[in-house]
Design a protein around this nucleic acid. Structure first.
Length: 571
RNA sequence: UACCCGGUGGUGUAAUCGGUAACACACCAGGUUUUGGUCCUGGCAUUCCUGGUUCGAGUCCAGGCCGGGUAGCCA
């Protein structure tokens, strides 16, 4: 249909911008903003918005501001501001000198509020929060006018000034826009613009005891900054008429608000409230727990900013509420790490193996390729000796069909080393568990194939017992057992779907000696296992790795299918 | 029950403002392979429904069905 070299498809927002550029609607400018409230850590859903806003500016030669929407001092903290700045920067975006705070505009907002009062478009209301709610009406019934709606301009001016001066207790009065209490859009039923609130603001301190509401503040912030396209999520769609009303009544510069669907991921929750609950409730080890969908958690887990950006690009932008398969995210990291992560050998569940015919004290330094995808990454030496550790899962005393790794009498290749044949095993007398294997090796294939053309069906990773470095490895799985964590029995909440297996700590892993002292943040592929990243908990004498994601595992699938078949065969 | 917004394969998007459904992920089946990785090949769709306009509709119109959002002095 479409020519293979057709121009990349534009999402609906890009189309709007392209059209605006064509008609010169904004004098050729494109100016977006990412406006987080500093009341929590950024997550992958925010990454979508960040990539969208900064990406749009980049694609169309425009600008994107980083702006903190800090109008509610009760929930906001400096810690969050710091983390947000770090995360956006880590994702690879640059706002240059355009770091703004909504609170910096409080004075201007106040003046504009006075302007609206003077125009008879805003009034001070003495209704209690409870009364305000009652007067608002319901979804299906109109509201009714506040008895304070007809106050004179002078009285409103005086009252509003005294609200600011702190003459009234918290919650006692509000400044409201005078619009239409019968509007079918509840946001237009005389929305509150200011509330009296004595709370110390993280930036303005005690200067203010009235704070602007989102709708009022956000439109003004966008206007002040000369934003052209104010992009937000779908739940603000009903707020757009209000956004427009404020700006029109004020007669000030008026950006266009555009709404898109926020990101949802399978096996993941994205609400800041719930993520905070997981942190506070000790269900995870903090905002940067590698199981969290937070940017900081993903960073610690080993995700690359590039892979997150690629993911955000691929999921697209639309107005339909959808849930993306987390496999798509995992694919993006694998793809990126496959190209850049150096390969090493690491044994997660060590099984001691003695090569009986290998010289007792001999050690050979074998050549290993650092990344078959990138020859430029070179090679390294890996020590081989008589006693090795192999992965427990790579040996089966009684191998099932299609299992072609090590088993009694079987021959396999050791990566970059020799062919070995299993000749015997030692079992724990109590448990019957295999605790050691005995093998013989054939020196001929050293590093490659056997000269006699003999084939083996498996190549296993290994480490030399005498040279290996001990490591702790943390294996992560989905935080929730259900694709939709919100799918719960009556009376339960999402926490009942928390997975008991989301974290497995392995403390006796063995990795090749070259990994000693690896710096936190360094990423590797443990061959045949997955991608791993050195955790900040790691130190010179204690290596700690996080598993970012497993490798695709064909055998695991086969085995799973076999078990499913057996099960259905039984019944 | 009111208003607003949506509805394309298992999932997420695309289809150059009517021209005969594409890409990615997932899944399945093969091939290559010193990672059962990567890579390569193939398989998997009557666009929510019903009418209408048209030579032609995923795109336009009408009605219906389904889903999401909204009753904070949160954002």
């Amino acid at each position: 249909m479409t020519a293979p070299d057709a121009r990349p498809a534009l999402n609906f927002i890009q189309e709007i911008i392209a059209e605006d550029l064509k008609t010169n609607k904004w004098d050729g400018r494109v100016h977006t903003r990412f406006p987080p409230e500093p009341n929590g850590y950024l997550h992958i859903g925010h990454a979508k918005s960040i990539c969208l806003n900064f990406g749009l500016a980049d694609e169309f030669g425009g600008l994107c501001n980083l702006r903190f929407d800090d109008t509610n001092p009760i929930k906001e903290e400096q810690e969050y501001i710091d983390s947000i700045i770090e995360d956006v920067r880590w994702l690879g975006f640059d706002w240059k000198d355009r770091l703004y705070y909504g609170s910096d505009y409080f004075e201007q907002m106040y003046e504009w509020a006075v302007q609206l009062i003077n125009a008879g478009k805003a009034y001070v209301c003495d209704l209690t929060p409870e009364q305000t709610r009652q007067y608002r009406g319901t979804l299906t019934t109109p509201g009714k006018d506040s008895p304070y709606r007809t106050r004179s301009v002078d009285e409103n001016l005086d009252l509003f000034e005294r609200m600011r001066a702190g003459d009234f207790p918290d919650g006692s009065r509000t400044l409201r826009a005078k619009i239409d209490m019968a509007s079918p859009n509840l946001n237009m039923r005389d929305p509150v613009m200011y509330r009296v609130l004595r709370a110390r603001h993280h930036r303005t301190g005690d200067k203010w005891c009235i704070y602007p509401m989102y709708d009022w503040a956000h439109a003004l912030e966008d206007s002040i900054e000369g934003i052209t396209h104010s992009i937000c999520t779908l739940e603000f769609e009903n707020h757009r008429p209000l956004y427009d009303w404020f700006l029109d009544e004020l007669g000030v510069y008026h950006p266009q608000q555009i709404e898109f669907a926020r990101l949802e991921l399978t096996y993941t929750i994205m609400s800041k409230r719930r993520l905070l609950e997981l942190v506070d409730g000790g269900h995870v080890c903090g905002w940067d727990d590698p199981r969290m969908p937070t940017i900081s958690g993903m960073r610690r887990r080993g995700y690359t900013p590039e892979s997150i950006r690629t993911f955000c690009k691929r999921i697209g932008v639309a107005k339909f509420n959808s849930t993306v398969d987390i496999a798509k995210l995992e694919h993006a990291v694998r793809e990126d790490l496959n190209k850049r992560a150096p390969r090493v050998m690491g044994v997660l569940h060590p099984l001691r193996v003695v090569i009986d015919n290998y010289p007792e004290h001999q050690v050979e330094e074998l050549d290993a390729v650092n990344n078959p995808e990138d020859p430029g990454m070179g090679t390294r030496k890996v020590p081989f000796s008589r006693v090795l550790y192999l992965e427990r899962d790579d040996f089966r005393e009684d191998p099932p069909k299609k299992f072609f790794r090590l088993a009694p009498g079987r021959e396999v290749r050791l990566r970059y080393a020799y062919y070995i044949t299993c000749t015997g095993m030692v079992k724990d007398e109590q448990t019957g568990e295999v605790v050691e294997l005995h093998c013989t090796y054939d020196p001929a294939p050293r590093g490659g194939d056997s000269p006699d053309g003999r084939k083996v069906k498996a190549t296993l990773h290994w480490v030399s017992a005498a040279h290996a470095v001990g490591a702790e490895v943390r294996l992560y799985d989905h935080l929730f057992t259900k694709a939709d964590p919100g799918d719960v029995e009556a009376g339960q909440d999402y926490k009942s779907n928390l997975s008991p297996n989301s974290l497995e700590v392995l403390t006796h892993c063995k990795v090749e000696p070259g990994l000693a002292g690896a710096a936190p943040g360094t990423r590797y592929q443990f061959e045949r296992n997955g991608y791993f990243c050195v955790d900040p908990d790691s130190s010179a004498d204690r290596l700690v790795f996080n598993r970012t994601v497993t490798l695709r595992d064909a055998w695991a699938r086969i085995e799973k299918a076999q078990m499913a078949q057996e099960k259905s065969g039984e019944s």
